[in-house]
């Protein structure tokens, strides 16, 4: 029997509709009839005009918020509560100012059944991998934006999530720093020893999405529906100024604008 190899499905959204406000009155529909599958070894980006429900989609995926209609599945099982196998990186870093780098990263292991020593070991390993070695005792106020976001990424990765969700992770950084951090994140992604089986990134920056992703989900303005899925088969490292990239960026921008 011949069967084509298909990477396993990690998360599935089936006909998801998300609305705010009571359904009996006039709800604000944020996402409508979303069907989406995230597979193993995929870097997926979600792009769309502001207010189209990009970030809400991440929240629905993790089970942080429930859809009004439709289902979310993780490994074929319906998600009923917050999914522990996913962790999130935030645009504004979301660090605790009174905790140092090491302690902020350790927050990612809260509630995990590891001994104190084991936690420390995992935290320090991740700190090293992410380039924060030397900053262990630094507090957020002593860090540049780029270093703060590294802490955010280390905290998300330390629990070895199966899926890494990133909500506009580079938007708060200056263009040079974001160029650098994007590169570092791609290096981490290519490292087979690191846990995430898939990355889902929300961004309003189409060039960034095209440069980094295997697949891009383009959402329409509110209520967000999927306008198009674009597969990007270009090998990495990609040249952000190549005509191929330009063309895809152009096409997607045309869909959004």
């Amino acid at each position: 029997m011949t069967e084509q190899f298909e990477p396993s499905k990690l998360v599935e959204l089936h006909n998801v509709t998300k609305a705010y406000g009571p359904l009996t009155q006039r709800p604000q529909v944020v996402l409508e009839h979303i069907n989406l599958t995230i597979r193993q070894h995929e870097f997926v980006s979600i792009v769309g005009p502001s207010g189209c429900g990009k970030s809400t989609m991440l929240r629905v995926m993790t089970g942080l918020t429930k859809p009004e209609d439709g289902e979310v599945y993780y490994h074929g099982k319906k998600i009923e509560q917050v999914c522990e196998a996913m962790s999130m990186v935030f645009q504004t870093f979301a660090l605790f100012p009174w905790l140092n780098v090491q302690e902020n990263v350790e927050i990612g292991l809260e509630g995990k059944p590891f001994s104190k020593e084991e936690k420390k070991k995992r935290v320090l390993d991740m700190v090293r991998v992410i380039g924060l070695e030397g900053y262990e005792e630094a507090y957020p106020r002593e860090l540049s934006g780029g270093m703060k976001q590294r802490v955010g990424i280390a905290r998300a990765l330390v629990s070895e999530p199966e899926i890494l969700l990133m909500d506009e992770p580079f938007s708060a950084l200056d263009p040079l720093t974001s160029t650098h951090l994007r590169e570092e994140v791609l290096h981490l992604w290519e490292n087979p020893d690191l846990p995430p089986e898939a990355v889902v990134m929300v961004t309003h920056n189409v060039e960034e999405a095209v440069y980094m992703s295997d697949r891009i989900i383009v959402l329409t303005a509110r209520p967000g529906t999927i306008a198009k899925e674009v597969k990007i088969d270009l090998p990495r490292p990609r040249d952000p100024r190549s005509p191929e990239i330009y063309k895809i960026v152009d096409d997607i921008t045309g869909l959004i604008a």
């Binding site: 540049s144 934006g145 780029g146 950084l173 040079l176 720093t177 974001s178 160029t179 650098h180 590169e183």
Partner: peptide, 17 residues
């Protein structure tokens, strides 16, 4: 200058051969 900006500058330069 912040290290991230210096590394970012090198990466941009690298992109421009």
């Amino acid at each position: 200058a912040q290290i991230g900006t210096v590394m970012g500058l090198l990466e941009v330069l690298h992109d421009f051969k």
